[in-house]
Design a protein around this nucleic acid. Structure first.
Lengths: 246, 246
DNA sequence: CGCCGCGTACGTGGTTCCCCGTACGCGGCG
DNA sequence: CGCCGCGTACGGGGAACCACGTACGCGGCG
């Protein structure tokens, strides 16, 4: 994790100098196991974003899709009254930015210093047309997104504040890139702010803070630099079970 | 609408007799405008469901996908504590039941007497592999579902009870099959129960009732047989705007 | 360097209010 | 009738809301 962070920081530093260079051809470090995405790599372009920087805005033409190399991205919806909701977080490895329509319906912003690769939509669709495997993979990405959305909807509609926070931490732990040192005490990075988490969970930052503090006092989690360490997974799963609405 | 209801009721009656017959080849009544789905019709099988009947359960093998001919279907998620959430409603014309995984993550139940066509997953995927247009269309269906899910998530996370009910009615009006008599007073069919609506909106049936009653008193909507008639779209859009959370 | 000032992000306490949860009454339909 | 779906009234609770205190990171400047 430390090593990884260092590497990606180096990439970021290189790109921040202005060399928005072409992505290297199929990673030399990875031997076999050709991903269906590999065929796309020749069309990929790297770009770095600073913390808080906008990747695209709602209404923009949806002529690209992206993959996260390092950092993180939030998909944000705003309404006319200024209310904000974070629909999703995208972490390293995630593909995002595919749309059915021609325009973005959400905006995307970097939650931390972030490096992305983007692919032209035309190229992606042309490749999908020809390589059935890629088309199938893209469909799977969309359907997995839908499945995750359904879980989030359940969370927003039916779970109490404490459960939401606990579920969020567990989800982040699940999705985090495989951790080298996971002796049941799993470190989870939380690159996003409390406000982002609150807007994702349909809460306020105070409520998120309070519940995190309680989990710390209970010894279920421990606060780290910019994240948490899960000490008791079982307790985390059962947290707030009694305070449910139904 | 009346005529349509009659037709589909006839179909339902025929199928309820037990003849789960093959779907007719490319509808003779529709001349040109070949839909990407037409290639699938030869694999389609009709089946009727009674109100409340299960189409599939969570955990079942996901070896089919479905299209609604008449009636309606709810996608339901349940948790270990018995809490329920209705992720989506599927209306006539909608395709559903595509999954990334091999097993259903939600269950599907008919909200009223309903007729569906189902297609074997293998056939769908084989066709998608060969006909790029179908693969693209399936991707679009999934991405539109994702978009709608994002809107529902915003609703669940950030909108007050009154706004949720109003938004739901507007969405149903939007999605309803084009209404012949829409002199701004649009009739919206609500085949599902109040409990279904409540579980979809993250509310209780009492709260749904209260807000619908208020809308009726205000003259914004009028109650009909099994649905409502929207009398004042503008008022419906602005309903509950002051009671927001942020 | 070491100190200060500043802005951002995060944690805590008290009050208010919306919505849940319970309970009861009503009409329709089998 | 007996059941189900639906509308109405009322008290309690949980999260929003407001306000304040704390801990950093950063740049300037003596």
């Amino acid at each position: 994790m430390q090593a990884q962070a260092g590497t990606t920081a180096a990439i970021a530093a290189a790109v921040f100098k202005g060399r928005a260079d072409r992505a290297a051809p199929p990673t030399p470090a990875r031997p076999a196991a050709a991903s269906p995405f590999d065929a796309l790599e020749q069309f990929g372009t790297r770009r770095a974003f600073r913390r808080g920087q906008e990747v695209y805005a709602a209404g923009d033409p949806a002529d690209r899709c992206y993959r996260v190399l390092s950092g993180g991205v939030r998909a944000v919806g705003l309404d006319e009254e200024g209310r904000r909701h974070v629909a999703e977080f995208f972490l390293p490895g995630d593909l995002f930015g595919l749309e059915a329509a021609d325009a973005r319906h959400l905006s995307a912003e970097a939650v931390a210093d972030t490096v992305l690769v983007w692919y032209p939509r035309r190229a992606v669709e042309a490749m999908a047309e020809r390589h059935g495997a890629l088309g199938r993979r893209l469909r799977e990405v969309a359907l997995q997104g839908l499945r995750r959305a359904h879980e989030t909807m359940f969370l927003l509609g039916r779970k109490a504040a404490g459960e939401r926070v606990a579920a969020f931490l567990l989800e982040m732990a699940e999705r985090a890139p495989a951790d080298p040192c996971r002796a049941d005490g799993a470190r989870v990075a939380l690159p996003m702010t409390r406000a982002d988490i609150a807007d994702h969970l349909g809460l306020t930052i105070e409520t998120v803070s309070r519940n995190m503090a309680r989990l710390c006092r209970d010894g279920t989690i421990a606060a780290t630099k910019r994240g948490v360490e899960i000490r008791d997974r079982r307790a985390l799963r059962g947290f707030g079970a009694g305070t449910a609405k139904h």
